[in-house]
Design a protein around this nucleic acid. Structure first.
Ligand SMILES: [Mn+2]
Ligand SMILES: [Mn+2]
Ligand SMILES: [Zn+2]
Ligand SMILES: [Zn+2]
Lengths: 124, 124
DNA sequence: ATACTAATGCGACATATTCGCATTTAAAAT
DNA sequence: ATTTTAAATGCGAATATGTCGCATTAGTAT
């Protein structure tokens, strides 16, 4: 069960180090020089999510997007934050805006997925 | 461009009249007695969305769910509300909780998609 | 150097949604 | 009542995204 260091992991992490946007598998694959299998990329991404290194968002295009989990000390982001997807430049960013809602205690929330869609500052 | 009345439309609307939950295409198809083609159901649903009769939510399972748009006079629901998807009973409900966030004016919001996932009151 | 098993590549599979196109049919026009 | 028009449908194929099984490769600890 212990994780191993592999070129694939490093390549994927390098991509995330280069931007603070959330990215889909195909975009990530494009940004990597070496050839990595699609399924492998998904497995690496999901493993990173399990390990709390990445988090996953599903936009209303039905696709999964992955983004770095900012450490609580530096660029702090609320645990549950909104995301913004620009239909023009096709990027997804994690917003600093926190998600808050009221719901009866009887509900058990296991996941929060909030995405706003439209045009970002540059594209509007 | 003018809409026509068809048995399909009526059958789909009848399904929505029977519940206040959001439903996916396959569930809707199951609830209809007469045989309607899958693509047709999607087209009807999307047309209803265009016409403001239904609204669409995409959950983190990547699937589209459709729900009635409540009229502003009766069971008033905020324009942008949260949704809750129960992983146990597999239902999606429109919550009365309104979605509020702060984002620079330069952003142009065209769509809001917020889904909480977990276990509902009955299933928790 | 060897053993153990996590990680990968590959192809197949599953599922959801859309699209083109021929056909049907609701509704307007005659 | 009949004809006309284009909206709606059925069907099959296409697209897209994500997962899975399984054989193979390759980190890492001993
Ligand atoms: Mn985020
Ligand atoms: Mn709703
Ligand atoms: Zn943009
Ligand atoms: Zn439930």
């Amino acid at each position: 069960m212990k994780r191993r260091n592999t070129p694939t992991k490093e390549a994927v992490l390098a991509v995330f180090a280069s931007t603070d946007k959330a990215m889909s598998q195909d975009v990530i694959e494009q940004k990597i020089n070496i050839d990595i299998n699609r399924a492998t990329i998904y497995r690496v991404l999901n493993r990173f999510c399990d390990d709390g290194i990445l988090h996953k968002v599903v936009a209303e295009d039905g696709k999964q997007y992955f983004a770095l989990c900012k450490k609580c000390n530096e660029n702090e982001k609320p645990l549950h934050h909104f995301h913004f997807r620009c239909i023009k430049c096709e990027t997804i960013e994690c917003l600093p805006s926190e998600v808050s809602f009221s719901i009866p205690d009887a509900y058990l929330i296991e996941n929060v997925n909030c995405v706003l869609t439209g045009r970002c500052q540059e594209c509007s």
